[in-house]
Computed example of a mutant assay.
Amino acid sequence: MEGNSLPEEDVEMMENSDGMKTVTDESFPMVEPFIGMEFESEEAAKSFYDNYAICMGFVMRVDAFRRSMRDGTVVWRRLVCNKEGFRRSRPRRSESRKPRAITREGCKALIVVKREKSGKWVVTKFEKEHNHPLLPLSPNVRRNPLLPQTPDEKDAKIQELSAELSRERRRCTALQQQLDMVLKEMEEHSNHLSTNINNVIQSVREIESNTFIKPLS
Rank of each mutant, 00 (worst) to 15 (best):
F86I: 15
F86Q: 12
R87N: 13
S94Y: 10
R97E: 15
A101P: 06
I102Y: 08
T103M: 10
T103Y: 02
C107L: 08
C107D: 02
K108I: 07
L110T: 00
I111F: 00
V113R: 01
V113D: 01
V113K: 01
K114H: 12
K114W: 03
E116Q: 12
S118I: 02
G119E: 02
G119Y: 11
G119W: 05
K120N: 04
V122A: 00
K125C: 04
E127Q: 15
E127G: 08
K128G: 07
K128V: 03
K128L: 10
E129L: 14
H132Q: 03
L135K: 13
L137N: 15
R142S: 09
R142K: 14
R142D: 03
R142I: 04
N144I: 06
P145L: 12
P145C: 12
L146C: 15
L146M: 14
P148Q: 08
E153Q: 13
I158T: 15
R169H: 06
C172N: 05
T173I: 11
L175Y: 01
Q176N: 07
Q176A: 08
Q176C: 08
L179W: 10
V182Q: 02
E185A: 12
E185H: 07
E188Y: 03
S194N: 11
N199K: 08
N199M: 00
E206D: 14
I207V: 08
E208F: 04
E208M: 13
E208H: 12
N210T: 10
